[in-house]
C-alpha cells in the first residue's frame, strides 16, 4: 500500500553492490553452509538409509541381509496397511478442502470489520496452541456418547440424536477430522485474513461499480489474487496431513479394530511395537514415494515456471 513496498520481482536487490566482489560472492555461500549441511546429512542421508534398509530382513536390529522386494510384498498384502492408506487419503482430501473452505469463509467473515475482532481471532487461534495429544484427548471425550455431545443433545430433548463416530468404524475418520479441523483451521484463517487485508480497497470499489456481487467478487477476483496465500496454506496443511499420528494415538489408538489406522502409526508399530524394522522401513519408503509423486508435479507447476515469479 505504501510506495516503499517492493514486490518480489522488482530487482533493486540484485543491483545492490557489496564493497568487495569476492566477499559478495563468498559470504552468502558461507551463510548457507550450515543449513545445506544439516539438510543434506539429516534429511537426505537419513532418508536414503531408510530406503536402503527397506530391502533387508531387519527385525529387531537393522541388518544388511538383502531380501529384495519381500518387505514391500508383505506390506501391500497387509490389510492394515491398505486401511491406513485409504484412511490417510480420506482424511487428507477432506482436511485439505475443509480447512481451506472453512478458513477462507471465516476470514471473509472477520474481514467485515466485526466488533471485537482481536478477541475473536485469539479464540480462534487457541486450538492451534494445543498439541494434538491434548486435542485428541479433549475430543475423544466430547465425542464420547455417554459424556459428550450426544448426551447433551439428548438432554436438550432430541432423544434419538446419535453421533458416536469414535465407536463406528464407518465414520471414525470423521471423528478425527473434526478434531483436526478444530485444531488447524484457526491458523489458516489468520493467514487468509492477512491475505484479504492485503488486497487493495480499490478492487472492491471497482467490483461494486461494475455491479458484481460480493460472493462473485470473492470467487472471481479476490481468490485468484490470493494465490500465494493459498500456496502457503496448502504447504502447511499438507505437512500436517503427512505427519498425522499423535492425534490418532490420543483419540482412537487406531480403533475400533483397525478402522482408524494411519501410515505413520503402521510404521511406528512395526518399528517399536513389532520389532519388525524392515516392515517399518518399507512402509516409510512407500510414504516417501507417495509424497514425492504428489509433490513433484505440483512443485513443478507452482515454482517451475518463472512466470508467476
Amino acid at each position: 500500500m505504501t510506495t516503499t513496498d517492493i514486490g518480489p520481482n522488482t530487482g533493486p536487490r540484485e543491483t545492490v553492490r557489496r564493497p568487495s566482489r569476492f566477499l559478495r560472492n563468498l559470504s552468502p555461500k558461507i551463510a548457507m553452509l550450515p543449513l545445506i549441511f544439516t539438510a543434506c546429512v539429516v534429511f537426505l542421508g537419513g532418508t536414503l538409509w531408510t530406503v536402503l534398509y527397506s530391502f533387508t530382513k531387519s527385525g529387531l536390529l537393522p541388518r544388511l541381509s538383502w531380501v529384495g522386494l519381500d518387505q514391500y510384498e508383505r506390506l501391500w498384502s497387509s490389510r492394515k496397511w491398505i486401511v491406513s492408506i485409504e484412511n490417510l487419503a480420506l482424511y487428507g482430501i477432506c482436511s485439505l478442502i475443509g480447512t481451506l473452505v472453512i478458513g477462507f469463509t471465516l476470514a471473509a467473515l472477520l474481514d467485515r470489520k466485526i466488533r471485537g475482532e482481536a478477541v475473536f481471532r485469539s479464540i480462534f487461534l487457541y486450538p492451534f496452541a494445543l498439541s494434538f495429544i491434548v486435542t485428541g484427548l479433549v475430543w475423544q471425550w466430547i465425542l464420547n456418547p455417554e459424556l459428550g455431545l450426544q448426551n447433551v443433545v439428548r438432554e436438550w430433548g432430541w432423544t434419538s440424536f446419535t453421533f458416536d463416530p469414535l465407536n463406528n468404524p464407518e465414520i471414525v475418520m470423521f471423528g478425527l477430522l473434526i478434531a483436526g479441523l478444530w485444531q488447524g483451521t484457526g491458523l489458516i484463517m489468520c493467514i487468509m485474513l492477512a491475505g484479504l487485508r492485503g488486497i487493495d480497497e480499490d478492487i472492491w470499489k471497482a467490483a461494486r461499480v461494475d455491479g458484481i456481487g460480493t460472493v462473485k467478487t470473492y470467487i472471481r477476483v479476490i481468490i485468484p489474487m490470493m494465490r500465494p496465500v493459498f500456496v502457503t496454506s496448502l504447504v502447511l496443511i499438507a505437512a500436517g496431513i503427512v505427519k498425522l499420528y499423535d492425534l490418532v494415538v490420543a483419540q482412537t489408538s487406531g480403533g475400533p479394530g483397525i478402522s482408524s489406522e494411519v501410515p505413520a502409526k503402521y510404521v511406528m508399530t512395526a518399528m517399536f511395537g513389532g520389532q519388525n524394522l524392515g516392515q517399518g522401513f518399507a512402509a516409510s519408503s512407500m510414504m516417501l514415494l507417495m509424497v514425492v509423486i504428489i509433490l513433484i508435479p505440483w512443485a513443478y507447476l507452482e515454482f517451475g515456471g518463472k512466470k508467476h515469479g
Binding site: 539438510a39 539429516v42 534429511f43 531408510t50 504447504v235 503427512v242 524394522l277 510414504m287 512443485a299
Partner: peptide, 20 residues
C-alpha cells in the same frame, strides 16, 4: 534451495526416524 528445503517439511518424518 528454498523450494527443496520446504519440501523436506512435507516428507514423512518416519523416514528419518530410525537413523536418528
Amino acid at each position: 534451495v528454498l523450494l527443496w528445503m520446504l519440501s523436506t517439511k512435507m516428507l514423512p518424518a518416519v523416514g528419518v526416524l530410525y537413523p536418528l
